[in-house]
Amino acid sequence: MTEAASLSPAVLASKRDIVWTSHDGLKLYAADYGPQDSQVTVLCMHGLTRNHKDFEPMIQGLGMNMRFVSVDVRGRGKSDRDPSGKSYAPPVYVQDMAALIAHLNLDELILVGTSMGGLMAMLMAKAFPDKIKGIIINDVGPEVNPAGLKRIAGYAGGNETFDSWGDAAAAIGRTQAGVYPEYGEEAWMEFARRTCVERSDGKIGFDYDPVIVQGMGSTSPGWRVNFAMWRVFSALKSIPLLIIRGETSDILTEKTAKRMLRRHKTSKLLTVPERGHTPFLDEPVSLHTIGKFLTKLSQPAS
């Protein structure tokens, strides 16, 4: 935890809605927390099958007097699905983020990107570095371990439905137990509530377009994104960087994380114990490290 006072749950309950329009006409959603007049905005971008609610435990746990904007990337959560299914790719997502930044007239950003969101952060650093004061990359790097992609492809079909929230929580617990080994029934229910939605027929389903995971685990370049573009990562060299890795991650290997450290001379690496892919960022060690990083970057230049 940071030294700031704990954020009241009421702050999450009173979150503000942001809706903006993409270049191709989709209505996209983000949630807005904290003071809108904050000089620095923390822009949070989730992983492949998640949504803006992924960051609520972190925001509440940090308890910082900063503005946090957490997005639903197209095809997830409250954002529109692409009827063609052809635009689900990180370069398009970055276009959407650029439109959001323009919509909110933001000039000073700290990016927090989990997995796919971390790749987006790398691309954004290359596209508009002058707006970015710092980046937190959560459990992803310029190279991705194929074994991890294969594991995710094994359960992320998106079409599965459940008769009850309890069934959904139990199913998620079966697939994610190795990532969060200490989670119990209550934690899995909270996980389900963040990642699933009740449908019109009363069934519980995952809150994303199933099309986004098509091709996972194959050699298709549409889904086997080439994370080996280290020259993209090099665009971060002048931007403060915190790398977070789950101790047992099968996406960001220890070897790749150490190479990132060598390439970015001022970066820091946090390895979160007893976490796979991905840390939720509400772990005490994550909150402490992220809090210090954000506090330092939000201080006015002397």
Rank of each mutant, 00 (worst) to 15 (best):
S6T: 00
L7V: 07
S8K: 08
K15S: 05
K15F: 02
D17G: 12
D17P: 06
S22M: 03
H23V: 04
G25Q: 11
D37K: 15
V40D: 08
H46T: 07
L62D: 01
L62R: 09
G63C: 14
N65Q: 10
M66K: 09
S70W: 04
R76P: 05
K78E: 02
K78G: 03
K78M: 03
S79D: 12
D82S: 05
K86E: 13
K86G: 11
A98E: 12
A99S: 13
I101Q: 02
I101Y: 06
I101A: 12
L106A: 08
E108D: 01
I110R: 02
V112P: 04
S115P: 02
G117Y: 08
A121C: 13
M122C: 12
L123V: 05
A127D: 14
P129R: 01
I135R: 06
I135D: 02
I135G: 01
D139I: 01
V140W: 04
P146R: 00
L149Y: 05
Y155M: 04
A156L: 12
E160Y: 00
E160I: 11
S164D: 04
A169Q: 07
G173F: 13
A177H: 11
C196T: 15
E198P: 04
R199P: 03
G202A: 09
F206R: 07
Q214P: 01
T219C: 10
S220E: 11
S220R: 14
P221W: 02
F227N: 00
M229R: 01
R231D: 00
K237T: 00
L241Y: 04
E247F: 00
E247A: 14
E247K: 05
T253N: 04
T253S: 04
K265A: 13
L269D: 03
P273I: 12
T278F: 11
S286L: 05
